[in-house]
Design a protein around this nucleic acid. Structure first.
Lengths: 210, 210
DNA sequence: CTTCAAGCTGACCATAGGGTCAGGAAAAGA
DNA sequence: TCTTTTCCTGACCCTATGGTCAGCTTGAAG
C-alpha cells in the first residue's frame, strides 16, 4: 500500500524526473531568486539527491534557463486568445482572462520571469530581441487596425500592451502584497472580481466599442 | 587638482559613507537580487574596502533592510499628491505623475522593492501589515468618497490601486524589457508619452469626471 | 542469461562569500 | 601635547554551495 512501485520505463524515467526537477526548480527560483536558490534546496523539494540534478541538468544556470523558457512559452501561448478575435472587447477581454489565469496558475513562473527581466534578462535577452519583439510588433499592428476601424479609442498600442502585462502579472508577482492587504489568500470569487475589475477598467479606458 | 582633499568632519564622514554604501547597495541589490549580491561587489562600487561596510552595517541583511526602507518611504511619500486633491482627475492624475517619476528616478529602488515583495517580503512584512495597510485603507476610503460623490465610475477601489501600482512600477521593474522592445533607452519625450498614455487610459477607465 | 547503456548517488573538491579582529591612522577634546 | 574616541582595513576564518566522479543498480536488447 505504501510504495507505488510501478516500475517506470526507461523513457518515462527521464521525462518524469526532469518534470519533477523543473517543477521544484520553478518554485525555489521564484521564492529565492536565482542567487538565493540552491541546488540542494531544489533537490530536497524534488525528493532527489543533488547529484541527480546534475545528471539531468548540466548546471544551475542550465536548469534556470529551462524554467524561464517554459514560462515564456506559456506566456506567448496566451496571445492566441487575442488573435482570433474580431474586435478589442472580445480580443483584449480574452487576453486579460488568459493572462489572469496564468497569474493564478503559474504564479511561480511569473515571478521567475519578472526576476529575470528585472535583472536585465541575462539568459533570455535573445528571446526578447527576437520572439518577443516580433510578437509585440504583430499585436501592435492588430490594435492599430482596431483603432483605424473605429473599434476603440486612439491609444498608444505599446503602452496599452504594457498596461495589460503590468496589471495582469501584478496579481502573480505582487500576490503576497495583495494577500497581506486582503488579509487572506485570494478565493475563487476574489479572482473573478479581480478579472472583472481589470477588464472593465481597461476596456472602458481604451473606449472599446462593439 | 586631482584629489578633493577637503578633510571631512567626524559627523560628515559617517553620513557620507553611509550614503555612499546605501547607493551602491541599492544598485547591486537591484541588479543581482539579495542572494546574488555580494558585499564585495557593493564595496567595490562604493570604492571602499569590504571590511568598512561591516563597520557601518552589521550584516548584509541589515544593509538590505535599510535600502528597502528608504524606498518604502519614498513610495509612501508619493501618496501626498493624491490626498490634497478635490477629485479623481486631479488626485489620481497627480499620483500617477508622482509614481511615474519615481519609476524613472528610482528604478533601482523600485526593483529592490519588487524583489522583496515577490520573495514574500521577508524583511518588511510588518510594514505591509501596518503602514501599508493603513495607507491603503485611507486611500480606498478617499476613492470611495469620490465614487459616492459621482465624480467617477463605481470601480473597485482596491483593484484600482493595484492597477495604479502595477502600471506605473512596470516602467521601472520591466524597464529593461521596454527598452529592448523600444530599441533604445526611454527619452524625455518617451516618458512624457508614457505618462500621458497611462493617465488617459486609467482616467477614462474609471470614468473620472469634473 | 549476458551484455550494454542509462540511471543513480555518496563522498569528495575547490572556491566564494559573509563575517571577524587586531592593530593602525586620524579627528576631537582636554 | 596627551588621551580618547572614531574610523579604517589587511588578513584571516569557516561554512555553504556548485560541481565532479568512481562505481553501483537497473531496465532493455538479443
Amino acid at each position: 500500500m505504501a510504495d507505488n512501485v510501478r516500475p517506470l520505463r526507461r523513457n518515462e524515467i527521464r521525462q518524469h524526473n526532469e518534470t519533477l526537477i523543473l517543477q521544484a526548480a520553478e518554485k525555489v527560483f521564484a521564492e529565492a531568486g536565482f542567487g538565493g536558490a540552491t541546488m540542494q534546496l531544489i533537490a530536497d523539494l524534488a525528493g532527489l539527491p543533488k547529484a541527480n540534478l546534475h545528471y539531468y541538468f548540466a548546471s544551475k544556470e542550465d536548469l534556470y534557463r529551462q524554467v524561464v523558457q517554459n514560462i515564456f512559452d506559456i506566456w506567448l501561448h496566451a496571445a492566441e486568445s487575442m488573435d482570433q478575435a474580431s474586435g478589442p472587447i472580445e480580443g483584449i477581454g480574452a487576453y486579460i482572462d488568459a493572462k489572469m489565469e496564468i497569474s493564478r496558475r503559474h504564479a511561480d513562473g511569473s515571478k521567475v520571469w519578472a526576476s529575470e527581466v528585472m535583472h536585465g534578462a541575462p539568459v533570455i535577452q535573445d528571446y526578447l530581441e527576437t520572439t518577443l519583439r516580433d510578437w509585440t510588433t504583430g499585436r501592435v499592428g492588430l490594435i492599430q487596425r482596431w483603432i483605424d476601424e473605429g473599434k476603440m479609442a486612439p491609444v498608444n498600442p505599446e503602452h496599452l500592451l504594457y498596461m495589460l502585462w503590468a496589471t495582469t502579472q501584478h496579481y502573480a508577482d505582487f500576490g503576497h502584497q495583495i494577500e497581506t492587504l486582503n488579509g487572506a489568500p485570494m478565493t475563487d470569487s476574489d479572482w473573478q472580481a479581480a478579472k472583472h475589475s481589470v477588464k472593465s477598467m481597461i476596456l472602458r479606458g481604451i473606449g472599446a466599442i462593439e
